[in-house]
């Protein structure tokens, strides 16, 4: 008899280029996270604190496939399911919920090249520019059944601007799965060709499906 194999878990150790979203006050934040083999977790915000870019977070913990750590300064608890092919998941604060998504960053980011000598951030400061944003069609059956909903997809953007490896972080109804994914995969960002050795960048897109009564 063959036993079902354990799912392979993502190795989260190292440096990650991440976005944090869902806080209306802070907006989307681009940060770098570092998970050390000693259980340490550190966060850096590229465009602040030029002298000491890294701030400590709680030690990371692994419960089954769930990675957990806490940012006590903003009272956020982060979780990630390491069954995914890249690092990301959700965060919870006392009154807020959000998400985070990462792409692997080059190891040298972990060592002091975060800020240039001029004090300018040297890493992931250029925003991703959408060149094509395909709008999903509202599923006909969802209109017939008066269904509204929301989908959040996180993904990687490669240096040519292509969307890769999409994952649903939030999906209120399966009826919105196909149209959201189709629209995302038809989208394209402006590519970049700077000298930084960054292959992929993380991004997320939310789709809010709404119906308005017109009679």
């Amino acid at each position: 008899m063959q036993l079902p194999s354990e799912p392979e878990l993502l190795n989260h150790l190292g440096v990650w280029n991440c976005i944090l979203y869902g806080d209306p006050a802070l907006g989307d934040e681009r940060v770098i996270l570092h998970f050390g083999p000693d259980g340490s977790t550190r966060i850096a915000r590229p465009n602040e604190n030029t002298q000491r870019p890294w701030a400590p977070l709680s030690r990371w913990q692994l419960e089954a496939s769930q990675l957990k750590f806490i940012d006590s300064r903003v009272q956020r608890s982060y979780t990630a399911d390491l069954v995914r092919t890249t690092l990301g998941g959700g965060w919870e604060a006392p009154t807020l919920l959000g998400g985070w998504w990462c792409s692997e960053a080059p190891p040298e980011i972990a060592f002091n090249i975060l800020i240039s000598p001029a004090g300018e951030p040297t890493f992931m400061t250029q925003p991703l520019i959408p060149e094509v944003m395909a709008t999903p069609r509202y599923p006909r059956r969802a209109i017939q059944e008066a269904k509204e909903g929301r989908a959040v997809l996180c993904f990687q953007v490669d240096s040519s601007g292509r969307v890769k490896d999409p994952h649903f972080i939030e999906l209120t109804d399966q009826i919105f799965r196909g149209t959201s994914l189709d629209a995302l995969m038809l989208s394209q960002y402006k590519g970049w060709s700077d000298a930084q050795s960054v292959d992929n960048r993380p991004a997320c897109r939310s789709f809010v499906y709404q119906l308005t009564q017109i009679y």
Partner: peptide, 12 residues
Amino acid sequence: GLRPRVIMEDHQ
């Protein structure tokens, strides 16, 4: 009788 709308927002 229902007008559909999809609002998209990028997070990056």
